[in-house]
Simulated assay, not measured.
Amino acid sequence: MEPESGTNRTTVTEFILLGLLEMEKLQPVVFVLFLFAYLVTVGGNLSILAAILVEPKLHTPMYFFLGNLSVLDVGCITVTVPAMLAHLLTHKHTIPYAACLSQLFFFHLLAGMDCFWLTAMAYDLFLAICRPLTYSIRMSQTVQWILVAVSWVCAFTNALTHTVALTTLNFCGPSEVNHFYCDLPQLFQLSCSSTQLNKQLLFGVGFIMAGEPVVLIITSYIHVAAAVLQIRSVEGRKKAFSTCGSHLTVVCLFYGSGIFNYMHLGSEEASDKDKGVGVFNTVINPMLNPLIYSLRNPDVQGALWRVLVGRWSLT
């Protein structure tokens, strides 16, 4: 929206989330589907985490990263979906201005953590396959916790930067957000002050948060692919490519949907597509991750079986 003269403060105290569908008849169906997806996602990721905690064989750096990724996936879907379900259940679609900012902050915090965590997992694969002799030193517990701390600091800085920058914008109406959660592109549409600097900040910080990790991931996989092709054992190559394939699938889904979501900054022509991409980012990706990592991993499958069925069933 164009800036309005004389507007120097935010007059909108709450936003109206229009949700996925405007047809009231279909809203019960949407509620059931998203409730099921939420329960499956939380259950699947917590099962992966429990399997990693109880199985000594999985107490390795790779599964340390996978367990943390499961926690992030639970957090990511919890930031958006329960609020949407509450809106559908109560037929109240308003969200206070402060709550909207909080949702945006935590969403970008967890999404930023995903960026760095997927990069750390690629680095771990690179060390395990290309530098096996020095792997235990280069990926010690100290290094793992340093990666955790750095990732949280960078992700927190990114989320706080966008949230604070958004508070500099004026919102004086309309207040209808064409989405089911608060995010930057849709809120930019509602501002009655210039969003040019905010958009430049989104692109600039986005390059640091996504561009550099993508470059590091690609570089790691170039080295990994070259090393795997030199393995003489067919079984060894198959196992290496299986491990890398799971991670690469998650990377493509996460970055592909994320780049598409922010590439056009929520233009009105693409707002309905934004909802679909938002579902992919916040629901489908976290729901698929446990399946992707356990589908072709016998160690995880065995640990999951012991968690869900009991150790007695394997004796």
Rank of each mutant, 00 (worst) to 15 (best):
residue 222 I to H: 01
residue 117 W to V: 08
residue 42 V to H: 05
residue 158 N to F: 15
residue 272 D to A: 14
residue 142 T to N: 09
residue 304 L to D: 04
residue 173 G to H: 09
residue 52 I to P: 07
residue 87 H to Q: 11
residue 270 A to L: 15
residue 19 G to V: 01
residue 185 P to E: 03
residue 30 V to L: 15
residue 29 V to S: 08
residue 203 F to Y: 10
residue 284 I to G: 12
residue 191 S to N: 05
residue 39 L to N: 10
residue 137 I to K: 10
residue 230 Q to R: 10
residue 87 H to I: 02
residue 210 A to E: 12
residue 306 R to D: 05
residue 172 C to H: 07
residue 202 L to S: 13
residue 274 D to Q: 01
residue 260 F to G: 12
residue 145 W to L: 10
residue 63 Y to W: 09
residue 118 L to S: 06
residue 66 L to T: 05
residue 195 T to M: 02
residue 164 V to T: 14
residue 294 S to H: 06
residue 67 G to F: 06
residue 206 G to L: 02
residue 205 V to F: 00
residue 233 S to P: 00
residue 185 P to M: 00
residue 77 I to A: 00
residue 106 F to K: 03
residue 150 V to W: 06
residue 314 L to S: 14
residue 91 H to S: 15
residue 212 E to R: 07
residue 72 L to S: 12
residue 78 T to P: 04
residue 260 F to I: 06
residue 88 L to G: 01
residue 1 M to D: 00
residue 9 R to S: 13
residue 51 A to T: 05
residue 213 P to S: 03
residue 132 P to C: 06
residue 119 T to H: 04
residue 301 Q to S: 02
residue 68 N to W: 12
residue 287 M to Q: 08
residue 220 S to A: 15
residue 138 R to S: 13
residue 127 L to Y: 03
residue 80 T to K: 01
residue 263 M to Q: 05
residue 101 L to A: 13
residue 256 G to K: 12
residue 42 V to G: 07
residue 177 V to W: 02
residue 57 K to V: 12
residue 50 A to H: 09
residue 108 H to G: 01
residue 124 D to G: 12
residue 238 K to N: 13
residue 158 N to M: 12
residue 151 S to F: 00
residue 228 V to K: 00
residue 184 L to K: 05
residue 275 K to E: 01
residue 20 L to Y: 02
residue 181 Y to Q: 12
residue 255 Y to N: 07
residue 32 V to Y: 04
residue 160 L to T: 15
residue 78 T to L: 11
residue 42 V to L: 13
residue 269 E to S: 15
residue 98 A to T: 15
residue 124 D to E: 15
residue 196 Q to L: 11
residue 210 A to R: 08
residue 200 Q to E: 01
residue 270 A to N: 15
residue 146 I to W: 01
residue 228 V to Y: 06
residue 248 L to V: 09
residue 288 L to T: 05
residue 216 L to T: 11
residue 155 A to W: 10
residue 100 C to H: 03
residue 145 W to E: 09
residue 232 R to L: 06
residue 218 I to C: 12
residue 100 C to R: 11
residue 98 A to L: 09
residue 94 T to W: 07
residue 123 Y to N: 13
residue 233 S to R: 12
residue 104 L to Y: 12
residue 315 T to V: 14
residue 43 G to I: 00
residue 70 S to H: 05
residue 62 M to K: 15
residue 13 T to Q: 14
residue 125 L to E: 11
residue 311 R to I: 14
residue 163 T to E: 03
residue 172 C to R: 02
residue 30 V to F: 09
residue 117 W to F: 11
residue 44 G to D: 08
residue 65 F to G: 04
residue 146 I to C: 07
residue 216 L to K: 13
residue 296 R to I: 04
residue 229 L to V: 03
residue 186 Q to A: 12
residue 255 Y to D: 02
residue 310 G to Y: 06
residue 39 L to Y: 09
residue 167 T to V: 00
residue 143 V to D: 02
residue 86 A to G: 11
residue 221 Y to R: 00
residue 214 V to T: 07
residue 118 L to C: 07
residue 202 L to D: 05
residue 303 A to V: 07
residue 268 E to L: 10
residue 95 I to P: 00
residue 62 M to R: 15
residue 258 G to D: 00
residue 153 V to P: 02
residue 24 E to N: 11
